[in-house]
Design a protein around this nucleic acid. Structure first.
Length: 259
DNA sequence: ATTGTGGCCTGCCCGC
DNA sequence: TGCGGGCAGGCCACAA
């Protein structure tokens, strides 16, 4: 589950390749290219060019090459390998073993180095010049006022809102449950029903939780994570956790303190 | 505008 | 020992 935290680590690792000249790109299969991007386009844009800036919006990694931008989405099991070094050693719901057949995309540099995406399940994709305007503000940069406005304009549940990358980008299912748990808000709460105090709390926990989990080692290092299973109990009050599907996603939450 | 469902694809774990 | 089924969750297409 590469969420904002993991993709930020990928971005940092990718900065090591800024300024290098690209000698070749390869893609495992056209299936790994997003609809609208062809391998010929990709090749013509990058051949002989230098890698420019490396940016991130939410879970989307952006590699600038001349005037073009290569967007990389990591799906559930994608990891970045820079010069043979795997950026993250442990990811949930997948194998962490590096297998050649799982390399989906790679950029070779004329100095012999590489930047590659390894993604066992292949849910990720590569897109040329992705429409960045489709993504909401990055979760780490969201302001309280901005968050209040998003809440007031939404008829959906808070869980659906936090996971909606068009409204706020970077939060995945695990981060989401942890944020809600720390905020004391049930996932099924309608966003518009939050009072000023609650909005303040959630806005603060969005940033606080991401920063804290980054320190703890990743999206899967939340305090709730170890109890996200049958018969799990709330680490805060010991109450049995509830499991339900909200916004189409498995949600674990404490009915005692999340209201 | 929002929700639900199914699909993509692989690995892991469980029960038989 | 091995096989099948269920499940994990990011993201998209589609239907309602």
């Amino acid at each position: 589950m590469p969420e904002l935290i993991e993709v930020e680590l990928y971005r940092k690792a990718a900065t090591r390749t800024i300024g290098r000249t690209i000698s070749a790109v390869s893609i495992s299969s056209n299936k790994y290219l997003r609809e609208g991007t062809s391998s010929a386009d990709l090749r013509s844009v990058v051949s002989g060019s230098q890698l420019g800036n490396v940016r991130r919006i939410g879970k989307l990694l952006l590699l600038e090459v001349g005037t073009a931008v290569i967007g990389v989405r990591f799906g559930m099991t994608g990891r970045l390998i820079v010069d043979g070094e795997v950026t993250i050693n442990e990811l949930l719901y997948t194998t962490n073993e590096v297998q050649e057949r799982h390399i989906r995309f790679s950029v070779e540099f004329d100095d012999g180095g590489t930047l590659a995406v390894i993604d066992p399940r292949g849910f990720g994709n590569v897109e040329l010049n992705p429409d960045e305007s489709l993504l909401g503000p990055d979760a780490l940069g969201i302001s309280e006022g901005g968050f209040r406005e998003i809440c007031h304009n939404s008829k959906s549940t808070l869980k659906a809102l936090l996971l909606d990358q068009r409204k706020i980008s970077g939060i995945g299912n695990l981060l989401c449950d942890e944020i809600l748990w720390r905020s004391g808000i049930a996932p099924s709460r309608i966003s518009r029903s939050l009072n000023t105090k609650e909005i303040k709390r959630v806005a603060s926990e969005v940033k606080g939780t991401i920063k804290d989990l980054a320190k703890r080692g990743g999206s899967h290092m939340g305090k709730l994570q170890s109890e996200r299973h049958e018969n799990g109990v709330c680490p805060l009050d010991g109450f049995p956790l509830s499991r339900s599907t909200v916004a189409g996603r498995t949600s674990w939450w404490c009915p005692e303190h999340q209201l």
